[in-house]
Design a protein around this nucleic acid. Structure first.
Lengths: 225, 225
DNA sequence: GCGAGTCTGTAACTGCGGTCACAGAGGCCG
DNA sequence: CGGCCTCTGTGACCGCAGTTACAGACTCGC
């Protein structure tokens, strides 16, 4: 028990260096007070209009935060990874409002959920923790504003190019998955990818896109700004 | 001097009831420490990639926060009114990052700008003030997520209808101004307004749109969700 | 090896939103 | 009154994204 808590504390601090600001005692207490949640890949972490059970620290896996329509289309707002915190959750917690999007576990997910009183206490007493949370807020807001701009003003091929660039050398994903990130539909993504391949920017394979001309893609993504 | 500070304090507390959590002394000190800024209508309050001089409380006027393109198109992200705070500013301040949009005074604007150390002190010491700021964060984030959804999934006529509904009985604005809120262009707004008028939902006049069928507009705005 | 299910390609068509190029219409000011 | 500026109306045209409807390709399990 104590050993596993020690281990947990270590992993926590490795992912969230800011927690070093806590005393060893406080950290141990945190590990005991917080509840551990495990979810399978694909499970819903939260949904629109729910209330929020606490402040989640991500130990493993990722959450994708998504708006979706009745027609089955979907759009990625942002992704939450270990070391981040799910800002929408914090915002519910802090603002006492409700979720306004859905969160879905992309990989098997392990969370440590701080109960609200503990969270508020840490915000009150730990300037560094406060800074950490605020910094996440600031980042998300900037990202969301950027996203609005891109959706409003950029063509889909540019957004697709940017998405591919952000994913490294070879992207393993179905066209449907890419469409869901962009808020579009599969056929269009297929068509655009074929276009990119025709320009020699990528090479296509099953569930795989290999970038061959990174610079060209970047030019496309940045054209007309 | 003291009289004018008293007046200021009164106006402040009227607009920001949360400041009641301060002692009379602290409030007086705040009024003295903070700097007052006046800007003409149309003036830039901040721009992308600037750093942030402090935490603004709005005494009079409004700020529109906007993304704009090289081609001269513009898109309203949100509007900041007396009693609100400009969250993008707070996010810069708290997250030590930079603006990622432009802020423009819509009316003659009076700000009271709290220097960062004072702001941080209040965040640290005043739980109610902290709540107030967080609540604003939460609201903005939810609004931005909503905006992404609307831009990505809703037709322009629906978004226009919603915009008109949110503006009261008769809307006084040029088509260009409406286009700038929606991230579109004047001709399209004119065309769509003509369509709405044709359906008997609104009546058009110079720099003026009068809503005659509120319910019909609402149906249009909500159709296909 | 066969069939079900998933993933991809692709062609025809539609419609929304944007661009361009004007023409009036209403105000404001000298 | 005449000229200028802003605001609005409008028609022709274009291109992107979305829809529909398939057909083939690949994978996996039986």
């Amino acid at each position: 028990m104590a050993a596993s808590d020690d281990e947990l504390a270590e992993r926590l601090v490795a992912l969230y260096p800011v927690l070093r600001c806590l005393s060893a005692r406080a950290l141990a207490e945190l590990c005991q007070t917080a509840s551990r949640v495990q979810l399978a890949a694909g499970a819903a972490v939260f949904d629109e209009c729910q209330n929020c059970p606490g402040f989640p620290l991500i130990l493993a896996g990722t959450i994708k935060v998504v708006k979706s329509t009745a027609a089955g289309r979907e759009m990625l707002l942002y992704r939450v990874e270990p070391g981040d915190s799910c800002i929408i959750t914090s915002s519910c917690l802090l603002g006492r409002s409700r979720y306004s999007a859905r969160g879905i576990a992309e990989l098997p997910l392990t969370l440590l959920v701080l109960p609200p009183p503990l969270f508020e206490q840490m915000i009150a007493e730990q300037p560094l923790f406060r800074d950490f949370v605020f910094h996440l807020f600031a980042e998300r807001i900037a990202e969301l504003m950027q996203l609005v701009e891109e959706v409003a003003f950029h063509r889909l091929d540019q957004r697709l190019a940017k998405l591919l660039l952000a994913r490294g050398e070879t992207v393993r994903a179905t066209h449907q998955a890419l469409a869901d990130e962009l808020g579009s539909v599969r056929e269009i993504v297929s068509r655009l990818l074929k276009g990119l391949a025709g320009q020699g920017l990528v090479v296509l394979g099953r569930e795989q896109i290999s970038i061959v001309d990174r610079e060209g893609l970047r030019q496309l993504a940045d054209s007309g700004r």
